[in-house]
């Protein structure tokens, strides 16, 4: 029982990051139908830039946090303005998705050039004794990760349901023509969706780095896992990514614990295959909607 709980907590931690990456996928998918495969790179970017500001430049925590999020936002914006916007008019989705892969390789290359191949870490947000629940140990950083994820989810929920800008973004994802007739600037919405996704990814990276370390090439795997989480819950459904992310994280950690840690990464791909065979629309998605979309 204790062991089971311990695995569960570990799963919740990694699951949080998958959920954040999955949400990032969904936000961009909803406004453009693009799968931004550079999504995982922003997690890495968050972790490494945070290390750079915090440890290398010795800046205070809050300043480092702001600068890291700012960097991620700028790079997210640059990605949209430089690589997506020029292609959006042509409307070739496959081309745009390939460009996001190119962009992820570019980011990875730059990060390797700057940081090398070593893993980086910094001290947890708060120092303190781990908490014990039924014999299982939770570090304070784990609580931070889960707390921040929940906070992000709540914030995004409020943004999309209570503010006009959020509603406009939803409207764009549902019906571009009607959205334009309402006076919504679609190009700005696309830009904003890339910006939000980049920042969310970076937040995940900042929170997880003290636990799982961060190195330049983690992004590709995170993209795959986050994508898997999004597919599992139903692409485009925000709660789907949350449920999918936590489910995936826990299954991974249970597999690693009870079977073999070598199977850890395989489980995500197995789940993805299983879902695509059995219920391609995911847990919350509707098959009819899937048929009506190109991707």
């Amino acid at each position: 029982m204790t062991l089971f709980l311990q695995f569960l907590f570990a799963g919740l931690t990694t699951g949080s990051v998958y959920a954040l990456v999955g949400i990032g996928f969904n936000i961009i998918y909803n406004s453009t139908s693009i799968i931004n495969l550079a999504q995982g790179e922003f997690v890495v970017l968050g972790g490494l830039m945070m290390w750079f500001f915090l440890e290398s430049l010795q800046l205070p925590f809050s300043v480092s946090l702001c600068l890291t999020l700012l960097t991620a936002a700028i790079i997210g914006l640059a990605q949209e303005r430089l690589t997506i916007k020029p292609l959006l008019k042509k409307g070739d989705l496959l081309l745009m998705i390939m460009v996001t892969i190119a962009f992820s390789i570019l980011i990875r290359g730059i990060l390797m050039f700057k940081f090398g191949k070593d893993p980086y870490t910094y001290s947890p947000f708060t120092e303190g004794e781990p908490i014990e629940i039924f014999g299982a140990i939770i570090t304070q950083q784990t609580l931070w990760v889960i707390g921040i994820t929940v906070f992000c989810i709540v914030l995004l929920y409020l943004f999309f349901n209570k503010t006009m800008t959020g509603r406009a973004m939803k409207a764009c994802s549902l019906d571009v023509k009607a959205a334009r007739l309402m006076g919504i600037n679609v190009s700005k919405v696309v830009m904003l969706s890339f910006l939000i996704s980049a920042v969310i990814g970076a937040i995940g990276g900042i929170a997880i780095t003290p636990i799982s370390l961060m190195e330049y090439d983690k992004g590709a795997m995170l993209s795959v896992k986050g994508f898997c989480a999004a597919i599992l819950g139903g692409l485009g459904k925000s709660r789907g990514a949350v449920v999918g992310g936590f489910t995936l994280g826990m299954l991974e950690s249970l597999t690693a614990g009870y079977i073999h840690s070598g199977f850890k990464d395989a489980i995500a791909l197995l789940i993805m295959l299983f879902i695509l065979f059995v219920k391609p629309a995911g847990i919350f998605g509707k098959t009819e909607i899937l048929r009506l979309r190109k991707f």
Partner: peptide
Amino acid sequence: HVFKTLSVEENILLGAY
């Protein structure tokens, strides 16, 4: 072209965007 998965009220509100 109503926004099908948004509520009626949200649809009307979006008109004032």
